[in-house]
Design a protein around this nucleic acid. Structure first.
Lengths: 256, 256
DNA sequence: CCTCTCCTTTTTGTCGGACATATTCCTGTT
DNA sequence: AACAGGAATATGTCCGACAAAAAGGAGAGG
């Protein structure tokens, strides 16, 4: 139902006093993309509750100082990701969480623009614990020489720069991407794009809280060795412990 | 209450033969949604190859007999799903497959509007074989009385009507949905919601090819019993065989 | 007083045209 | 031939208007 009165004011998280509401588009970004990000992160982070009605298009686009067209295109993006639903006269309303495309890369990114709920991170790691060992198993059976080469270089880069540097984290992503590529399974790879992004965010969290309490390189090496040897069971097991430790680190980091 | 009904009309179910005619929107469907579906399925089914450039907005929207605004909103949907990318002056180009959000429900649906590649189905079932046994295991550990009740009624409905009827298939979906809900993991639920939709399409394929070669009820019962008993290992194993058989059936049906 | 029907009003949906912006690509210069 | 600069072109944004659908209220009838 409709809450009376103060119901749903646009956020315009007022750092500026005056009408600086216009979402300036960052590097090369399109305007409607910026609006979509702004609205999307606002929804995912809970500033709009499921069932809430957004302000009307005309009014909202006015307060944002953008044209209705740009605003509408942004809303279409949110509709495409299952965050909101628009019906004539009823307005645009936030859908319940179970309709959201949580594995959409953008939605995941938006979820990590703010402090994500600990439960959600738990769910994500649980999915990782399901998918990644199985992926490692598949990779062990199907990898070719090129896959191993890419993983090896990524591993070397991880050793050289630690996970504290951005280049080091990029190498970590490369390692996991190469592993998933070796599964020869498009669906699994697509999942990785989502989970991988989330994982990189949680890695940043870990770093932010304190120094990494444990050197993750040996775990990665064990995974690599098992895949190189074509030992599917060992690869799965090694990956399982790797994810376990990552979860443990993240959890302790977030409690602090 | 929310009319869940996406039983909404499949537009232009008949012939798409007519040159490039205006995409008539089925009851309640928005125009840009229809365009997005048309373009999306064309891309996913391969009628546009990755790297191809779409016709310019003005020209294309003219041949479709729609306004540029509607066309643009449709394109934004495709952008949101990673299918295309638009850049000034360069035009709108189809992205490589690894950029697509394959687990997006709409993308999956579009993939099954035409004859999907057998490899893709294989990938999908492989992912199912990874996720669903693990989900059953989680469900066995976390289900409560309500979950079991819902699953039990769904099971009864499946027994009453077979999978040959739509109500029977709906009961099948209910069963799997209840199972996933019992995992208490939003990410797993979201993933399986996508895959589940695709699976229901393959089920229809099976039915179309020939009568279901095997009674699937006992397999479901085994899964239910294991979950009810809280036996995680048995639940995973039962689900594994269930998915295995489903894959086998689908494969033999598609070879015919 | 309640219910049903009809109409008003609100909000999204679609349209058309205009201008802005950013590249690409061609052209002309050095 | 290399480079710089301008014209062409496609997307990006803005504006204003009307169409369509549906929620909510008004009025007739029970």
């Amino acid at each position: 139902m409709e809450e009376a009165g103060e119901a749903l004011v646009p956020m315009q998280a007022g750092e500026a006093d005056q009408a600086e509401a216009r979402p300036k588009r960052g590097t090369g970004r399109r305007l409607h993309g910026a609006i979509a990000q702004k609205l999307g992160s606002a929804i995912v982070s809970g500033r709009y509750a499921p069932g809430d009605r957004l302000e009307g298009e005309v009014a909202f686009s006015e307060t944002l100082n953008v044209s209705r067209s740009a605003y509408r295109e942004a809303v279409q993006v949110l509709v495409a990701k299952g965050l909101v639903e628009s019906r004539t006269k009823a307005g645009t309303r936030v859908l319940p969480r179970n309709r959201w495309n949580l594995l959409d890369p953008d939605v995941l990114a938006w979820a990590f623009t703010g402090e994500p709920h600990i439960d959600f991170i738990r769910d994500l790691f649980e999915l990782r614990q399901i998918v990644e060992p199985a992926a490692a198993s598949l990779a062990a059976q199907r990898r070719d020489r090129d896959d191993l080469a890419v993983m090896k270089t990524a591993l070397a880069a991880m050793r050289k720069y630690s996970l504290a540097t951005e280049t080091g984290r990029a190498a970590d992503r490369d390692f996991h991407n190469a592993l998933l590529q070796a599964t020869r399974n498009e669906a699994v790879v697509a999942l990785s794009a989502s989970i991988g992004a989330a994982v990189s965010w949680t890695t940043q969290f870990k770093q932010r809280a304190r120094a990494l309490p444990r050197n993750p390189i040996p775990d990665h090496v064990r995974v690599y060795d098992a895949i190189a040897a074509g030992n599917a069971g060992a690869a799965a097991e090694a990956m399982r412990t790797l994810v376990d430790l990552a979860l443990e680190d993240t959890r302790s980091a977030m409690q602090a």
